[in-house]
Write a protein that binds this DNA or RNA. Structure first.
Lengths: 363, 363
DNA sequence: TTGTAGGCGTTATCAT
DNA sequence: ATGATAACGCCTACAA
């Protein structure tokens, strides 16, 4: 008892005079501070705070009370160092300001929070170099897993995966085939449905305003469009297919060109809602009535789609759910399970007012 | 030399047989692994990797090469433990899916990235309990600073500030007066400008569709509206002031009621763009022409504002810049500076097509 | 049921 | 210019 006290005193002196020369940088209260107040060893405190069964109820309660009263917060960084698990995941996005992306992240975050994980967020600005750097920083942070949305360079992650030994899940990335774990929207089915919808309304000259050439999602959506035409035995008009950039400005110019054709389309199917926004605006500017004169269909079902004039017929991507699914897969992978199948999510046609029956005598 | 080798060998044996009984959980390569390969002590490696001047060029280069080749990534968690600085900040948002919020976060993230910080993101869902929990988790993560956007419970952070001893900056929170460090939009000036704009167009019966009663930003925007009326010596009509909820659905019903008045307004100034969206839709449904029959002005300048029909006159909040400013302040605070003045950002009226001169004979 | 000791991967302060 | 050593705050055998 006596010697124990002496040791304790010596220890205190050491830590007060030597270890903490600058008392001005007072650290957050630690497990040791609590141990001192409770007159127990700090390992007892550690156990009590984890509700370990091998601690007497009395001391456990006392310790927990002291911890609460002194506003103790266990250091996740110290814990991470010893357990080799940080309970964090990294999320790489092109831009968090993108409404598609932000809803996916919303889903990811919700799932993380429910499972005690914190999320690191980083923008890549669709720049492969930045994307690389961001992932390096995640590596240094020792994240337990990574989710990447809309990457153009999914292949980048293949070597990283083995290097970092951390599970990675991609959402709507450009080259899912190359990557094991991914959540993808069913582009082909979605755009087939959209095109079929227009065909059933009687349209024969249906334009497709795509994304930049070579992008996987564009290729797939175009493919769905072709499939619909083919299975309805309708002719394919190459002049009705134009590549945009997924933004509305470009779509405006494209629409004008489309309308200048000797035989303009009677319906326009757009790669995404942003493109459709530009198309709508351009059509309005030309004084055309929608859908009386021409029909428009988008893809994504952004919030804005129900507020355009007229409300936009489009293909819905359940973005938040895709985020939840991605995080769900990641949790399984981090738990050591080895699911290797890519998840694919059905796209849902949402019919609003921008699509209508073909008017035979429209001009 | 001989004894040194022996020590080294002993050390290796110890760490290989005792310290790492399970070689299956192979950790990322550490400073020690590199030290072994380079035949130097691990402190030399540490210095070489930090470009310490007291290391010979030769060994420094050798070490750096080995580090690069073995894909070494310094553990930020270990570094954080010893330096007591994690180089992370926590961002609390109501919902990252909110377009206002996501652009603020975009600015924050950009600034963080430029300065070597990583950002933890967490949704509060506007729930004070969640908000409290989120901040606790940030405390455990030992973040170096916190940014909170659109909190309704700014006061919550006052005790936290002293407890956590971490700088906090609030963006557009409800009660800035209570809090030292904040970035706020100039609500009063912005809505005064908007209202003046309508007055100059000849409007006398201008409605204000606000947010829920009691919210600071609503109170301020209403105050700007009143100021404009007063300084133009115009009468104030209480029946033209209605409280919405900042969402478009509610605004639809409100607009219908407004139009049923014996003397309906000739212009509607909305608390935000979402509200304006509902107003526009309702107006369209009633067959009114905008702005010929009635003018509409919003607040925020969301992306969607330039794509409504007609494009919406509104008051712009420079959201990304506000994020940058908030993070700028936080950097200064984390650097030990003690700026205590709240930052206020000017709002900018953006005139588009939804506002026009009063038509005397409109009905 | 509780205490002791060692180690997680760094940085930093001594020595040499 | 380099090496040994002690933290940082926590977890976890192993001892008692």
């Amino acid at each position: 008892m006596f010697s124990a006290l002496q040791t304790c005193a010596k220890h205190n002196m050491a830590s007060d005079s030597v270890n903490r020369p600058t008392s001005s940088v007072n650290r957050p209260t630690s497990i040791k501070d609590i141990a001192r107040k409770a007159n127990v060893s700090f390992s007892t405190v550690s156990r009590a705070l984890q509700n370990s069964p091998l601690i007497s109820r009395r001391t456990a309660e006392k310790i927990q009370r002291i911890a609460r009263d002194s506003g103790y917060r266990a250091s996740a960084v110290a814990r991470g160092l010893v357990t080799q698990k940080t309970k964090t995941i990294g999320v790489v996005v092109t831009s968090i300001a993108d409404p598609f992306v932000s809803e996916v992240v919303d889903g990811i975050e919700e799932c993380c929070n429910d499972h005690g994980y914190s999320v690191f967020l980083a923008n890549s600005n669709a720049d492969p170099d930045r994307e690389r750097k961001v992932v390096q920083s995640f590596a240094e942070r020792r994240v337990d897993g990574i989710v990447v949305t809309s990457s153009r360079v999914g292949a980048l992650y293949i070597p990283l995966l083995s290097e970092m030994r951390v599970p990675i899940v991609l959402v709507n990335n450009q080259h899912p085939g190359e990557f094991v774990h991914s959540v993808m929207i069913e582009n082909v089915q979605g755009s087939r449905d959209a095109t079929n919808h227009l065909i059933q309304l009687g349209h024969r000259r249906i334009a497709y305003v795509g994304d930049r050439f070579g992008h996987q999602s564009d290729t797939e959506r175009f493919s769905g469009y072709r499939q619909a035409l083919d299975s309805a035995a309708l002719p394919f008009f190459p002049e009705l297919v134009v590549h945009g950039d997924g933004k509305s400005e470009k779509a405006i110019a494209i629409t004008e060109a489309l309308l200048r054709l000797k035989e303009p389309p009677t319906a326009i199917f757009c790669y995404n809602d942003m493109t459709a926004l530009g198309v709508l605006r351009s059509l309005h500017a030309q004084g055309l009535r929608i859908p009386a004169d021409i029909s428009v269909v988008g893809f994504d079902d952004l919030f804005i789609a129900s507020y355009t004039d007229p409300p936009l017929t489009t293909v819905r991507q359940p973005r938040k759910r895709m985020g939840l699914l991605a995080m769900g897969s990641l949790l399984q992978l981090m738990g050591g399970q080895n699911l290797s199948q890519a998840i694919t999510v059905a796209a849902e046609l949402v019919v609003r007012k921008s699509s209508g029956p073909l008017q035979k005598d429209r001009r």
